[in-house]
Simulated assay, not measured.
Amino acid sequence: MDTVEILRRLVAFDTTSRRSNLDLVNWIADYLDGAGARVRLTSDASGEKANILATIGPDEPGGIVLSGHTDVVPVDDQDWASDPFALASRDGRLHGRGAVDMKGFVAACLAAVPGWRARELRRPIHLALSYDEEVGCLGVPLLIADMLAHCPPPALAIIGEPTQMRIGLNHRGFYGYRSVFHGRAAHSSDPRLGASAIEPAAAFVAALAGFGRQDGRGATTVNIGKIAGGSAINIVPERCEVVWEFRPPDDTAVGFVLAEVEGFVAGLPDGVSVETLPLARVLPLDCAADSPVVAAARGLGGLWPPLAMPFGTEAGFFQQAGIPALVCGPGSIAQAHQPNEWIAVIELAAADRFLARVGDWAAVDPSST
């Protein structure tokens, strides 16, 4: 099957993050097994979601990881011109949910497998396909841990999010939290008998709003997404919830914000406590332009100059695990998450050429490069 036909099959699976992805996972696993790849699955606690790790080539260190996610965002309340889960071709564009984000890249990787298998590979090619990227990169830590436990260390990872085949070196992280302040209710005629949960929550919100500016580089942003608290005008509120997120450029900025939050919590008034729970975590990516992974990606056909990426990816998780990583994939992020989502046929063709060169790279004896 070629890339377009495989994409047609993948789009037909409704892998919206709130649903199981197992039907798609089983189809891909059967396809890869039939093509001679070594396939491993890892599941979430419910058993309703699974990652796929497949290896083509020798069981040797120094391979390449091609990474993508299997889940898609919802189509609820979007006006589509055709069935979002049936690939439609119009004017050189292939429309369907996930066509660009990011089943197009996954389809191109799967279509390349028979060609890779026909080569005498000297270095392995690993396909790493995760679950629940769209709701906070929940599957990729388990996927990477399984890879490191069962595969020799790879040399690099390329995450195929849509960049129009330009190389992406840097993006901010995303950290989301729910902070619930607990106080003590009382009649408002004598507030001293209670402990307001709203007042320290409001001070916390004001402090959060300043963290981005205090970072000094102007790159960390903070957003307060939700505040809810209190029950009546004449009751000292005993509970207030703040849902918030920040987007840092690097680990230093992460440490700064979390240290400031810890300092604020340490100074809460008597009778007030707070419980902060993580909701989402996407690690920042910081790849140097002169690194070997960039040279390799450019040799494979990744386009230069690098793309500024306002969106997050799973690349930072690979980087944190010691696997040099960058982002490079077909299509434009501008079409992602939109009604009538699409990827251009010529973009898929560019991905096919890129992945054919991955086979060339893996066929070369690493000692000669």
Results as ranks from 00 to 15, higher is better:
Ala362Val: 01
Pro200Lys: 10
Ala29Arg: 13
Ser82Ala: 09
Pro292Glu: 04
Ala54Ile: 10
Asp71Pro: 13
Asp251Arg: 10
Asp79Ile: 07
Leu307Trp: 14
Pro61Met: 12
Asp83Arg: 08
Glu161Asn: 12
Ala186Pro: 02
Leu285Gln: 12
Ala118Cys: 11
Gly312Glu: 08
Asp365Pro: 06
Leu143Ser: 00
Ala197Trp: 00
Ser368Tyr: 10
Asn234Lys: 01
Pro269Thr: 13
Ala202Arg: 14
Tyr31Glu: 15
Leu300Val: 13
Asp33Gly: 12
Ser231Trp: 06
Asn26Arg: 09
Leu87Met: 13
Ile224Gly: 00
Val135Ser: 07
Gln164Ser: 12
Trp361Pro: 03
Ile235Pro: 09
Leu268Glu: 05
Cys137Ala: 11
Ala295Tyr: 06
Leu148Met: 07
Arg8Met: 13
Arg8Ala: 12
His187Glu: 03
Leu156Lys: 06
Val272Asn: 08
Ile224Trp: 02
Asp101Ser: 15
Glu347Thr: 12
Ala197His: 01
Gly98Ile: 00
Val364Ile: 03
Val140Gln: 15
Leu94His: 04
Cys109Trp: 11
Ala334Asp: 15
Glu245Ile: 12
Arg122Phe: 00
Ile167Cys: 11
Pro310Arg: 09
Ser179Gly: 09
Thr42Ala: 10
Gly34Gln: 06
Glu245Cys: 06
Leu300Ser: 06
Phe354Met: 11
Pro278His: 10
Trp304Thr: 10
Ala321Glu: 03
Val4Met: 12
Ser17Asn: 09
Glu199Ala: 13
Val73Arg: 15
